[in-house]
């Protein structure tokens, strides 16, 4: 992993090991295999991009790590501790793995500041003053100054996403799980969000598990692309992105970026076509 940040403060925590995971849905008697003997090893501090056609089962995998769903067989480890596996079908949702949702899940009834303070307030390890001081500081660091007392519904969707990421970071998670968070954003806002995300990542080294079907986004952000096959979901090809971090938008026009793009594109298109022909639903 030559492209991983070689910083002393780099976390030694947050490694995810997905080992031979199978997830079968059985909603109406007809078993549907969503994840098929999937194994992925993500070292701590890596930005791992999971790329695949819509409905291939990527979100199922994320939900299993987060603890929203159980798995059928296999193991998932976080830093060599079993999150779920035989005997513990479903992982316990917890603040060491925080999800940033596809449609955004900031609480519309809380101000941005209260949203950001929510996690630590629930855990109750720090005093209220300490939490709010930290929350204000993190908002300033992320360029969110002046929106503290606004409600999420009053700010732009790009800003909301940033508030949500800051909220996730407040609990000092080991892993951030992104479920196509920028899907609904226009491409200009998206590019701003990508740089903002990298900026946040350089300041808080966490492991990032990022689901997307946007190849450009995947190559720009990730250390590694894991291209998934269409349902059932299983790694089809792993692409290393050996463009050094920190990156900015000039990377997009570099020859190396194009080369990686070409390498990945063929595989992704083939899987997308298969998914389309199989008539998979969005999701």
């Amino acid at each position: 992993m030559s492209t991983l940040p070689k910083d002393d403060s780099m976390p030694i925590k947050g490694a995810i090991r997905i080992e031979d995971v199978v997830k079968v849905y059985d909603p109406d008697g007809a078993a549907v295999m969503a994840v098929d003997h999937c194994s992925i090893d993500i070292p701590a501090g890596e930005i791992c991009m999971i790329v695949g056609p819509s409905g291939c089962g990527k979100t199922t995998l994320l939900n299993t790590i987060a603890g929203f769903h159980g798995l059928t067989s296999g193991h998932i480890y976080l830093d060599d501790e079993v999150l779920c596996g035989p005997g513990k079908e479903k992982a316990e949702p917890g603040s060491d793995r925080i999800v940033v949702f596809q449609n955004g899940a900031l609480f519309p009834w809380k101000t941005n500041l209260d949203n950001i303070a929510f996690g630590p307030m629930m855990e109750g390890k720090l005093s209220k003053d300490e939490i709010y001081e930290k929350a204000r500081k993190m908002m300033v660091d992320a360029g969110l100054e002046g929106t503290e007392d606004s409600f999420p519904g009053e700010v732009s969707s790009g800003l909301r996403r940033r508030v949500e990421i800051v909220r996730a970071l407040m609990n000092e998670p080991k892993v951030l799980l992104f479920d196509e968070p920028y899907r609904a954003l226009d491409s200009l806002t998206k590019s701003v969000m990508h740089e903002a995300l990298l900026d946040i990542y350089y300041k808080n080294k966490v492991t990032i598990f990022f689901i997307t079907h946007d190849l450009e986004e995947a190559i720009f952000l990730g250390h590694r692309l894991i291209i998934m096959s269409s349902r059932p979901c299983k790694p089809k090809k792993i692409v290393e992105v050996d463009i050094p971090h920190p990156r900015d938008y000039s990377v997009l026009t570099s020859p190396r970026f194009r080369e990686i793009m070409n390498e990945a594109k063929g595989v992704v298109n083939e899987e997308a076509r298969k998914a389309f022909e199989a008539g998979e639903k969005e999701g």
């Binding site: 987060a66 999800v99 449609n103 899940a105 609480f107 929510f118």
Partner: peptide, 22 residues
């Protein structure tokens, strides 16, 4: 939306805290 409860659990809220805050 179920995502609000999921977000609350993710951020470390208990079932009762989720009831009160979500």
């Amino acid at each position: 939306d179920e995502e609000y409860s999921r977000a609350a659990y993710c951020l470390g809220a208990s079932r009762w805290q989720t009831f009160v805050h979500v």
